[in-house]
């Protein structure tokens, strides 16, 4: 039982850290540029597909990570310069419509290039087996690598945002964009750079989750919804909020899916428990979001005072 709880906690942490990568980019873009970007999940999908293509061509996972991150960052920045820049002045509804159209276009373009069948992206050979963490307790090596990658990126983002000048500009832009512009921050270049970083983060998440989940058209949609839940819980514009929110969502979702059915079965009959359990587990995160919104509507760590 103890190993089950430990394993589920690690699973929740792994899922949460990947959600953090997506949510961090999303919250920065929303917080600084005030842009609701529904195509964020598409960047995640593009990252996964680029990695799959490079692995198929060269066989090297490391090269695939590099290519995916750079490629998606470039694509993200191109999108920002050509299209998304025009949406900053518009209201949120127009942004939702435009980025939703972008999402659909991305799906169809990927389908044109790669087809509708899911493509193979397998984890590197050295990481494809389990690792013994405690006597009798094995955990997949790749999931540990994912947790590691997530933590590294989290630390890197923390250092970037709180210890560098660029990070200072980002934080200034998040709390008050007009004032930051008036104080001499080159807002246009900053925005493009922020979007590029957000796209790169999506790509890392895509490459890390690709071997675990299916790489297919539309893979970004389900995780995008969770990313929005995370930034609502964590607070718009706050990376710390995104981290806390993401780990919380990851843990609640995984632990809920694992233990709710078990818990229900202790006082309900087996067929009812197996019907109700999964349903309740899948809404657990939304119940969490509603609770946070009720108690603290601006989120747990709001960036704006």
């Amino acid at each position: 039982m103890a190993t089950l709880i430990l394993e589920q906690t690690l699973n929740g942490l792994q899922f949460g850290l990947m959600l953090f990568l997506l949510a961090a980019g999303l919250t920065l873009v929303f917080g600084i540029m005030d842009l609701i970007n529904l195509a964020h999940g598409s960047l995640y999908m593009i990252g996964a597909y680029l990695a799959a293509a490079v692995v198929q061509a060269t066989g090297s996972f490391g090269l695939a990570v590099l290519a995916a991150v750079l490629g998606t960052a470039i694509i993200g920045m191109l999108l920002e310069v050509t299209l998304l820049r025009r949406l900053y002045v518009r209201d949120h509804l127009s942004q939702v419509l435009a980025t939703f159209a972008l999402l659909l276009i991305c799906n169809e373009v990927v389908r044109l290039i790669f087809g509708s069948q899911p493509v193979m992206l397998n984890m590197p050979e050295r990481l494809s087996g389990p690792v013994q963490l405690l006597p009798g307790f094995y955990y997949p090596a790749f999931r540990l690598a994912v947790i590691g990658a997530g933590l590294v990126v989290a630390v890197f983002l923390y250092l970037l945002v709180s210890r560098t000048r660029v990070g200072m500009w980002v934080r200034a832009g998040a709390s008050n964009r007009e004032m930051a512009g008036a104080m001499g921050v080159n807002v246009k270049v900053l925005f493009t750079a922020v979007f590029g970083v957000a796209a790169a983060l999506c790509a890392v998440a895509g490459v890390m989750l690709g071997p675990l989940l299916a790489v297919q058209v539309g893979m970004g949609e389900s995780i995008l919804i969770l990313a929005f839940v995370v930034i609502v819980i964590g607070g718009i514009g706050s990376i710390r909020g995104a981290l806390v929110g993401a780990v919380l969502v990851g843990l609640v979702d995984t632990v809920g899916r694992a233990f709710l059915p078990m818990f229900l079965r202790s006082f309900l009959s087996a067929p009812v428990a197996s019907g109700v359990g999964p349903a309740l587990a899948s809404i657990a995160i939304y119940v969490l979001m509603a609770a946070v919104l009720f108690w603290r509507p601006q989120g747990l760590f709001p960036a704006r005072a």
Binding site: L4, Q8, N11
Partner: peptide
């Protein structure tokens, strides 16, 4: 991951 942990248990 949740289901696999249950299988292992």
């Amino acid at each position: 991951s949740a289901e696999l942990a249950q299988i292992r248990a």
